[in-house]
Design a protein around this nucleic acid. Structure first.
Length: 942
DNA sequence: GCAAGGTC
């Protein structure tokens, strides 16, 4: 009796894998290929025997995720609900329209098969996509047997291993991705809607030709920390206070060449100390060689190439953006010239045929000879590649897969990226460069100086990796005990410089270290910041925040939240890891994380003034409709007890009066009209302990003193659920305020209002209730003391340090703190610079152009010394005086480079061993007279 | 109109 052939549906994550695996398994034959519903996702067919059973294999693919996650249609419109409800509203996973053809293919194939084998990438996302495929297939055929193939590279042995050792899909890993998707969506959507609605119409946001009207001020758990890196570096630069330092340099010229010796101390910030040491050296300038150390040094080739390194190196070597690099790499991959370009892996599997890859490159006109040398055992150039320590278990490092000496349809960038991939690969399998390094140490009057010479013995990989260099420097030979007279001995000054703006490679580094994004998405996050006008990239490929980007980060920072820091993402990643390892359940992680973020969102909304203030620093207020008090929805107070379908929200009407109305209006007309004497009202995170159905959020009211009787408090934390006697009394006394609404109130309510209907309980409206944290909603501590809240960033203090603005330093006349220099962006003063105190309590403000430079400098000098109890400030004072007497120093210093304290030989001239005069002098660095500085009378006076 | 993650 013949065995029934099993029909197996195989699904890969991408078309190329379906093709490659089919070709491997059907070898030496070719699989037959037919079209599916989707033009990209072909179906390959062949016979194959799995564990002794003959199978008819149909092999097709998806293109990444088959499904999307989003809110139900009715909540996708921004005005449809309060953004805070986005933490609870139902979410659905569905196949979007552009993937429906793939879904149909899967359904049709699944109906005909009895076994489904999933060939998705072996990472978390792959596992999640596997379940998306399972959902679609089992919906039409619930008898399907389901298996998972685990493979880490498209290599014959790996693939055969995988198909003969099938495993089960991993639900934990898939759950982790579901949780991540839901958290990202809820946080992203809520904060994006909140800040866009709050700010877009309240300010004239005219950044880079965008008038702001169509702007989306997005927030995302990856894009915002990426912006945070850029802003933080920018603030660091602004806050940098240059400090002058001093160092002694020595040179020695002989017939064999010149050596420049560096002071082993490096440099000193204390000028007087440096001068004293310098004078000692000048008085006894004979140098004695105290150490000659010779050693062999190696410069190692890079690890195998992964995505982030490709992006970083293309940015450094070719000034290509990461986003463009990935586009070009994708083209090369699609055309078969390089391997899959989205990989974390930087080590080759032992099974990879590395020599075969080199072999392909032997015919290249430029690096072909090098490839030939590599394969020639006589050259001993070959070395097995190093292991970078990363393996995503899904893809090999990026390497060439097909030879090309350039294609007619390639742009220059295609050629460049291909060249980088090939040269990098050839470098990886090459010996390191070898050099002989000599370090010579000399002693002058007890001070040590050293110099290093390097001779390159074998360039090895450097011959092919033209992007790297290893400078050789020749120095004359020295022997231990040798003595000589320096050719020059100078006291030089330098100045500390701020770090540079972040380059693309720096930014990718920061993201990589903090776990922001994946290798496949990092460049997208960077591009998003540019698209959203949060950051710009200058001609040197370095990033600065725009005023919009800075204002947003500043706003959240001032709220005390680290939403712009990478910690939130890092914590989420840890949680996801726990879910994927089965240590935590998806439900528990979702609950914890979303509760915390909802609480954070509510608190941020209460502190929206901070965001408005930060924006107000850079942008002019707009008189467009919408904005702060008319934002859609309002803040949710409770679920409507009448219709039980919609939320009731706090609203301020155009006439300034407040009410709490049902979002289901006009179908549900339930409303609570509030006293007309209310000046301000804001929903808090505290809930009423008596009103039902819970929760009913309490509202913090501020009444107009003049409008309420003297025995009532102007500040009142009240409840609109009906339990609040004070609110009821004030409403009786003051009316509902809105002259027009008084008569309309009864008609709008569909029944008795909640306030008049509910059972009232005396004394439940506490004026001095227990302290409640607005962050975690627990009682007994304030939000500032909350343990669950992430610590306030120390880095924000850097912004409170002195900014560097030429020689100008302005301190607050109230608190004495240094004030950062900012640039106004209002219509009347756009581009005008000003100083303002970081502390808003001080209210200190000064236009930069209103400060008289001369008088200002004097005043600043005094304020600087007034607040300068630190040693650093003392150093500043000392240097300031010293600087005035150093000739030739201050002029060149403004260029920011190391300047010579001594320009020319004077007075006492030493003679070198060769009889030439050497430029050491006894000109006093304080007063310029010819005597040692240590005996200077002017110094003594000071 | 919102996120981040796959992928073409």
């Amino acid at each position: 009796m013949s065995q029934r052939i099993r029909r197996v549906l195989n699904v890969a994550e991408k078309p190329s894998v379906a093709k490659a695996v089919s070709e491997i398994l059907s070898s030496p034959r070719k699989p037959s290929m037919r079209e599916g519903r989707s033009r990209y996702n072909k179906i390959y067919e062949f016979e194959y025997t799995i564990c002794g059973k003959l199978c008819h294999m149909s092999f097709t693919s998806v293109t990444g995720h088959l499904m999307e996650m989003d809110f139900e249609e009715r909540y996708r419109k921004w005005g449809s609900c309060d953004p805070v409800s986005l933490y609870e509203l139902p979410i659905r996973k569905f196949v979007p329209d552009d993937k429906l053809d793939i879904k149909r293919t899967l359904e049709e194939e699944a109906r005909r098969c009895d076994w489904l084998i999933l060939w998705l990438d072996c990472d978390r996302e792959g596992e999640n996509i596997a379940y998306e495929v399972i959902d679609v297939c089992t919906a039409v055929n619930n008898r399907l047997q389901i298996s998972r193939a685990k493979f880490s590279a498209l290599i014959v042995s790996e693939i055969i291993d995988a198909v003969q050792n099938l495993i089960q899909p991993n639900k934990n890993k898939a759950d982790a991705v579901d949780a991540r998707q839901e958290i990202d969506l809820r946080i992203g959507a809520s904060f994006t809607r909140f800040q866009t609605i709050l700010l877009k119409d309240s300010f004239v946001i005219d950044v880079y030709g965008n008038d702001g009207r169509n702007m989306v001020l997005s927030y995302g758990p990856c894009q915002f920390p990426t912006l945070g890196f850029i802003v933080e570096r920018y603030w660091e630069i602004q806050a940098h206070e240059p400090e002058e330092f001093w160092m002694i340099n020595c040179s020695h010229a002989s017939e064999d060449g010149t050596s420049n010796f560096n002071w082993v101390r490096g440099h000193l910030f204390d000028y007087t100390s440096a001068v004293i040491v310098y004078e000692m050296c000048v008085q006894e300038p004979t140098a004695t060689v105290v150490n000659v150390k010779e050693q062999r040094k190696f410069k190692h080739p890079p690890h195998p190439l992964n995505t982030i390194e490709l992006e970083k190196r293309a940015s450094r070597y070719y000034r290509m953006s990461s986003e463009h690099t990935m586009k070009v790499a994708e083209d090369l991959y699609q055309a078969g010239f390089i391997s899959y370009p989205r990989t974390e892996t930087d080590s080759f599997s032992e099974k990879t045929d590395l020599r075969g890859i080199v072999q392909q490159q032997q015919q290249h006109p430029v690096w072909g000879t090098y490839a030939q040398q590599l394969l020639d055992p006589g050259t001993e150039l070959w070395r097995n590649p190093s292991n970078g320590g990363h393996d995503d278990k899904a893809h090999p490092p990026i390497h060439p897969t097909k030879f090309s000496a350039g294609e007619s349809n390639w742009t220059q960038d295609h050629s460049r990226v291909y060249e980088l991939v090939v040269r990098h690969f050839l470098a990886c399998v090459s010996q390191p460069a070898v050099g002989a390094e000599t370090v010579v140490e000399i002693d002058i009057a007890g001070e040590l100086f050293s110099t290093t010479g390097r001779m390159i013995i074998a360039r090895n990989y450097l011959d092919v990796y033209r992007f790297e260099n290893w400078g050789g420097s020749v120095i004359p030979q020295y022997v231990f005990g040798q003595q000589f007279m320096p050719t020059s001995l100078t006291l030089d000054s330098g100045i500390t410089r701020p770090p540079p703006l972040l380059s693309e490679a720096d930014l990718l580094n920061c993201m990589d270290k903090a776990g922001i994004g994946t290798d496949a998405t990092m460049h997208d996050h960077i591009k998003k910041l540019l698209d959203r006008c949060y950051a710009t990239k200058d001609a040197n490929m370095r990033f600065s925040p725009t005023t919009l980007g800075e204002a947003l980060v500043m706003g959240y920072d001032d709220m005390g939240y680290q939403l712009w820091k990478p910690y939130l993402r890092a914590q989420m990643e840890l949680d996801m890891k726990d879910v994927s390892e089965g240590k935590k359940s998806k439900t528990a992680v979702l609950k914890d994380c979303l509760e915390q973020m909802e609480s954070c969102f509510r608190d941020a909304r209460l502190k929206k003034e901070e965001l408005l203030k930060a924006m107000g620093i850079f942008f002019e207020r707009s008189n467009r409709a919408g904005g702060v008090d008319q934002h859609i929805g309002g803040e949710v107070v409770r679920r409507c007890p009448v219709c039980n379908e919609s939320d009731m929200v706090l609203r301020q009407k155009q006439d300034g009066n407040f009410m709490v109305g049902c979002l289901g209006y006009p179908q549900c007309r339930n409303a609570v009209w509030l006293p007309g004497s209310i000046l301000e009202a804001a929903v808090t995170t505290q809930t009423c302990s008596s009103c039902t159905p819970a929760p009913v959020f309490m509202i913090q009211f501020k009444f107009r003193r003049m409008d309420i009787p003297p025995n009532f408090d102007a500040n009142h934390l009240g409840c609109i659920g009906g339990c609040d006697n004070i609110l009821r009394q004030l409403r009786d006394i003051c009316g509902t305020g809105s002259r027009s609404s008084v008569s309309s109130a009864p008609t709008r309510g569909n029944g008795p209002t909640a306030a008049s209907n509910n059972t009232q309980r005396a004394n439940t409206t506490t004026r001095q209730g227990p302290v409640t944290c607005t962050h975690c909603r627990q009682t007994g501590h304030s939000s500032n003391e909350c343990q669950t809240r992430m610590p306030r960033p120390q880095a924000s203090q850097s912004r409170t340090r002195n900014p560097q603005s030429g020689e100008t330093l302005v301190t607050c006349d109230k608190c004495g703190a240094p004030c950062p220099l900012r640039e106004a962006n209002t219509e009347n003063n756009r581009g005008r610079k000003f100083y303002s105190c970081q502390s808003r309590e001080c209210n200190f403000f000064k236009w930069a152009d209103s400060i008289d430079t001369r008088a200002g400098t004097e005043a600043m000098g005094s304020s600087r010394s007034a607040s300068s109890n630190t040693s650093s400030a003392a150093r500043r004072g000392g240097r300031g005086r010293g600087r005035a007497s150093v000739r030739g120093g201050s002029g060149s210093r403004s260029g920011g480079r190391t300047s010579r304290a001594r320009a020319a030989p004077t007075g006492n001239t030493c003679v070198s061993a060769t009889g030439e005069p050497i430029s050491v002098g006894m000109e006093c660095v304080f007063c310029g007279e010819l005597h040692p500085a240590s005996t200077c009378p002017s110094r003594a006076r000071r």
